[in-house]
Design a protein around this nucleic acid. Sequence first.
DNA 1: CGCCGTAAGTTTACAGTGTAAGATGACATA
DNA 2: TATGTCATCTTACACTGTAAACTTACGGCG
Lengths: 216, 216
Amino acid sequence: MATTRRKPLSRERILAAALELVDEQGIDALSMRKLGQALGGYEAMSLYNHVANKDDLLDGILDLVLAEMEPPDPAGGLASIRSSSISAHEALARHPWAAGLLMSPTRIRPSRLQFMNALLAALRGAGFSAETTYTAYHVLDAHIIGFSLWQSTHGSLPADIDLENMRPFLDRMLPPDRYPHLHEHGMQHLEDGPHRDVRTFEYALDLFLEGLERAR
Amino acid sequence: MATTRRKPLSRERILAAALELVDEQGIDALSMRKLGQALGGYEAMSLYNHVANKDDLLDGILDLVLAEMEPPDPAGGLASIRSSSISAHEALARHPWAAGLLMSPTRIRPSRLQFMNALLAALRGAGFSAETTYTAYHVLDAHIIGFSLWQSTHGSLPADIDLENMRPFLDRMLPPDRYPHLHEHGMQHLEDGPHRDVRTFEYALDLFLEGLERAR
DNA sequence: CGCCGTAAGTTTACAGTGTAAGATGACATA
DNA sequence: TATGTCATCTTACACTGTAAACTTACGGCG
């Protein structure tokens, strides 16, 4: 009876619930038992009918994030590379845990390879040599992921800190007498919030792309 | 008797052994019981006489890596920023697991804050505005960590792959018909090994620093 | 000498993890 | 009605970090 009332499990429902759980409570909060409960009181082992193991589960939700990234058009030139990089960064900003997963060596997803391949194709298509393409690819990749990672560590503050008592918190974490420049930097972050991060990401991205254009 | 034969525990000995274990077998292989055994057959709980908990242990070995980084001289200008960035990258390349640890939000080490502060000071000292310094700091940080992370995922291949059968492995992982550009990129990696990564890191770094210099 | 305090190391125990193996039940088809 | 299939649950195991209590060794003091 209870069994008929609740919606049956499926890979898609499981992945969606896992994504929601991880987005809300962080990657460490994801356990098979907890996920089963969140899906309507299922036992952990029931999930294994639709998912090979936890790694497969993680691959699954990572794929969902990767699907949010718009790959570059191989014939779209630097403009397409730019907008695609921004789209990738946005996806990682929406799901801060994903950047970390993306970097675990054992988790090489086909969708990621496809994105990489398209990016390389776009670089060659934009007229860069194999040599420059090689470097540019690494720079872009490092920038997107590195920046997203930085943002993700930054964004997750203790839960009891809101914008009100942010200032004293910052003063305590980064005492101005010990870290004067760092404290100033923290203040800059407070000034106009997340918008600034986006601008910073794009500023650095453009700095790159301009440098590349000169090298072409 | 057995107790008198083996060297007594100490925080330093524990951290050194943990660092060695993690460098050799990866961060996931580090457990209190295994570490105790590696130190000469101690029980896991014995470690707690010298280390607060596992987090403290992780902080400890991360500090050892951070200590390998040469912070920039606040009065050293761009040259010092450059060599310091390279030094940080080298430390992270020696201990590939550290980049991941560095990015966990709860692990903000004083030595890291000091490094950050010195880097910001050097940027201001080199004559950049508060605004440009803000951006440049993030770019450098993202580049160092992002690139190191990329390298760390890259470097750790299945254990049974040596340079001999690298080529067929690459052909299988990145089938040329599905990922033509990516396959070519992989081949470039094979050509002259780790040296190339270093050159790529520094090339991108210089691209940045030149861009910054123009913006000054 | 005996006593005592302190500290290091050990033992035991507990809650939590992923997941293998087997039992149970509902349903569709023969 | 009988059989087979498949989703779900139960139980169990090895492993994790670590709290609490216990044992042991040692150094100083009467």
